[in-house]
Each structure stands twice: as C-alpha cells, then as structure tokens.
Amino acid sequence: MLALTAKGGTIVIGLLKQIIKTGRVTEQYDSGTMPSRFRGQLVHEESLCLKCQVCRDACPTGALEFNNNQLVVDNNACIFCGRCVEVCEHKALSHTTEYRLATLTSQLSAKIRATLQRSLHIRHVDAGSCNACDWEMTALNNPIYDLQQYGIDFVASPRHADMLMVTGVVTRNLEQALKMTYDAVPAPKLVMAVGSCAASGKIYGESYAIRGSAGKIIPVDIYVPGCPPRPAALIYGLLLALDRLGGNSK
C-alpha cells in the first residue's frame, strides 16, 4: 500500500511539474495569427477582372455570381476550396486569412441581445453533417479556446438552452427533430447556422433526402460560414450575437 501511495505521489508531482512547465495555454479567440496556408475570406481585385466568369463556372457550390457584370461572393455558400483562385488566369481572386465572417440577420433584436448579456447556454443539433463542423465545435471546450471563459457553455437539454447551434444540411429524417428541438427552447431564443451546409445548403443541393439549409426549416439569427469554420470563427459569431466584441467587431 505504501509503495502504491509513493508511486501515485510521484505521478502527481510529475504532472504538476509538466503543468508549470507548459504554462498558460488558453487564449483569446482573436489573439493568434492564422497560418499562411489558411484560406479565409475571398477577395476580388476589380481592376484585374476581365469578367470571363471562369471562376463562377469552377465554383462547386455556386457561391460566385455576376450581378450587373460585378462579381458577388456568397460567403455562406463558399467552402474556401480555392478552385476559383486556381482557374483565374488574371490573379483577380485571392484568399485572405480573415475568418471573422459571421453575420447577423435583421431579426436579431436588441431585446434578445440584452436578455443574453450575462451568459449563454447552447444546445447543438446535428441535422445531417459530415461531422467536420462538430469536431471544430468540440474544440471550443478544450483548454486552448475555453469557451466557458466567456460565460458560454453547452447543455444537454434544449429546455435549458438559449441558443441552438445547427450543423449540416437538414435531412428529411432529421427535419422533424430539428423543429421539435427548436420548439423546446424557451423564448427568447437564438439559432446559429454553423458551416456552409447549414448556412446555405448549396453543397448538397436538394433531393428527396435533403431539405436544405437550416434557415428553410427554422428562423436563423447568426450565420457562420466555413467548411468547417474554425473555433475562433465560431467564438466570433457568438460574441457578435451577444454584442461583446467592443472594438473588434467589423
């Protein structure tokens, strides 16, 4: 017994030494820089564009359109694959490292913002995702991002939630479950569409098995584009909805 106790004490001391050596790992969502290979917001240099529309034809999700001979980018549908950049011979398109692309709808009233100033409880709903967005959401609870430092946490029951975070294109089999979960959340409530599938539904389109984007089934207040969006982008969307960004909002 003494030998086991001594061994356990040695292990604990070793862990404490490692923690001290590692130091603090938690960071603010916008404190780090994106790696050079990261593909963020797509930007367009008008002076270099010849309106050949090759980029539009190369886009697999229809995120690029020419309106009145001007290129329009639908960030909610963009999966940042880089195909449009590759096919543009005139180098008019490029990806930046900007990840703060979350947007709010006009239905997000000041009353809801004021109600949710102190804390936010989230219920996640997977409506038919590939799990990429879900993995990024899981990272929100690790020591690096530590979502709880913002007073935000995930809950098991929609009846305890203030917000639904929906991932994936809405499938026929999960449409009813999504509606019932939304109805179970007490008012006032928010809905965040996480990732390009939930935000636009254009990646898979529509079929007998697919209903489309989350906004076609339930009211959506916040859109966070990406395939998948980084944890920092998700935190930006959450803080944007809660009006806690101060001078960092775009």
Rank of each mutant, 00 (worst) to 15 (best):
Thr5His: 13
Gly9Trp: 05
Gly9Ala: 14
Gly9Leu: 15
Thr10Cys: 12
Thr10Lys: 14
Ile11His: 08
Gly14Val: 10
Lys21Glu: 12
Gly23Lys: 03
Thr26Ser: 14
Tyr29Trp: 15
Ser31Asn: 05
Gly32Phe: 11
Thr33Tyr: 03
Gly40Lys: 05
Leu48Asn: 15
Leu50Thr: 15
Lys51Trp: 05
Cys55Asn: 02
Asn68Leu: 11
Asn69Asp: 12
Asn69Ile: 04
Asp74Gly: 04
Asn75Gln: 13
Asn76Trp: 01
Val87Asp: 00
Val87Cys: 00
Glu89Met: 15
His90Phe: 12
Thr96Gly: 05
Glu98Lys: 06
Tyr99Leu: 11
Leu104Cys: 13
Leu104Gln: 15
Thr105Pro: 05
Leu108Arg: 10
Leu108Asp: 06
Arg113Gly: 03
Thr115Gln: 15
Leu116Met: 02
Gln117Thr: 13
Arg118Phe: 02
Leu120Val: 09
Ile122Lys: 06
Ile122Arg: 12
Val125Phe: 15
Val125Ile: 14
Asn131Arg: 08
Cys133Asp: 01
Pro143Thr: 03
Ile144Tyr: 10
Tyr145Met: 12
Leu147Trp: 06
Gln149Arg: 15
Tyr150Pro: 10
Asp153Arg: 14
Val155Ile: 15
Ala156Val: 13
His160Gly: 11
Met165Arg: 09
Met165Asp: 07
Val169Tyr: 06
Thr171His: 02
Arg172Glu: 07
Asn173Met: 07
Asn173Arg: 12
Lys179Ile: 12
Tyr182Leu: 04
Tyr182Asp: 02
Tyr182Ala: 07
Ala187Cys: 06
Pro188Leu: 01
Lys189Thr: 03
Lys189Cys: 04
Met192Glu: 00
Ala193Phe: 06
Ser196Gln: 02
Ala198Phe: 05
Tyr204Phe: 14
Tyr208Pro: 06
Ala209Val: 10
Ile210Asp: 03
Ile210Cys: 01
Ile210Lys: 01
Gly212Leu: 13
Ala214Leu: 11
Ala214Asn: 07
Ala214Phe: 08
Ala214Gly: 04
Gly215Tyr: 08
Ile218Gln: 01
Ile222Leu: 06
Tyr223Ile: 09
Tyr223Cys: 02
Val224Arg: 04
Val224Gln: 10
Pro225Trp: 09
Pro228His: 05
Leu234Val: 09
Gly237Trp: 07
Leu238Val: 03
Leu240Gly: 03
Arg244Asp: 03
Gly246Arg: 13
Gly247Asp: 12
Asn248Gly: 02
Lys250Cys: 04
